[in-house]
Nucleic acid binder design. Structure first.
Lengths: 166, 166
DNA sequence: CAAAACTTTCAATAATGTTTGAAAATTTGA
DNA sequence: TCAAATTTTCAAACATTATTGAAAGTTTTG
């Protein structure tokens, strides 16, 4: 397979994956493009490679920077801004985890806690309490696990995986 | 808080969560409704509680059954079909993991394997190989982990979590 | 300081995904 | 077998989200 073809395949696959993960296609594709690019790319480069508009490129590059997985790279003597992706896949995973945790796990935990003071002793109320309490316990454990993951040192996750997989 | 209010809050929160996970709102809400319902519900019940159309209710109940987290319950003497949700949150997590693994992890693994036979020895080609090889290794580990999780006995996950959290 | 180079914003538009509702298909009971 | 009950399907309407592109804003350089 030729390099160009492989790159295109990879970028396209990553974009599709993003879509089913609540990350928009452009954002995922830009990230993929920067991940496999040997040199920093400018907004124009990204626009051209992915055939997307200036506005779209700009907004999604900003978003990636906010997520902490892409950063600006100033090239001396160049006026344009260039961008590089964090190349360490573990670090990417950690940052993405952190973002998603903040956006998704924490809000549902809030609701589950809030719901704990539901009144009533009817079978319905009791069933509700049990069901939501279980979900709360589970979500909380997941949350703790993700917290550890996203703040831990570089090798923690791999050590953990290896430990589990024995 | 009154039971009705708590239920509504929970269903609504779960629906919103679904949205950011590529699961549609109706599907997530139906699941939530069935989770906290003490008795099996018919399509009509679901339509009425969530104020959604017959078609919508039907399609999403089917989808939940496909995911293996809701099942039909025939009530003797009743012509209608009734539905119950898997109540064990661990089992739900396991099924959802399995589905997502099949739908998302496996396709990207295929692409990553496919991409391994990219030609060329240029720095660009080498960088590409390294980057995608790392991603492959990582994805593969995640995949193995999820496989273990989704096929394991009931307490595996909790044991694992406790082990990790010490 | 002015013009050029570049970045950001955002209203309009396009693309995608969801929901409806009524018609068709299927199942059930007599 | 028939007709009532129920489920399924799917084209059209609606809703949401993503994208464009041109204009406004900012920074840099001479």
């Amino acid at each position: 397979m030729e390099l160009e073809e492989a790159k295109a395949k990879y970028i396209q696959a990553w974009g599709a994956l993003g879509t089913s993960w609540g990350i928009n296609k452009a954002m995922a594709m830009i990230h993929a493009l920067l991940m496999v690019s040997i040199k920093p790319l400018s907004t124009e480069d990204v626009m051209e490679e992915l055939k997307i508009s200036r506005g779209n490129a700009n907004m999604n590059i900003r978003a990636l920077i906010n997520w902490g997985i892409v950063e600006k790279k100033i090239i001396p003597g160049e006026r344009k801004e260039y961008f590089v992706a964090e190349k360490d896949i573990m670090e990417v995973a950690r940052q993405v985890t952190k973002e998603r945790q903040k956006r998704e796990i924490e809000p549902i935990l809030k609701v589950l806690i809030d719901i704990k003071n539901v009144k009533g002793e009817s079978p319905e109320a009791k069933a509700f309490k049990t069901a939501t309490e279980d979900i709360y316990q589970f979500t909380n454990k997941v949350n703790t696990l993700l917290s550890k993951f996203s703040t831990s040192d570089e090798n923690w996750f791999m050590k953990m995986v290896l430990k589990i997989l024995k």
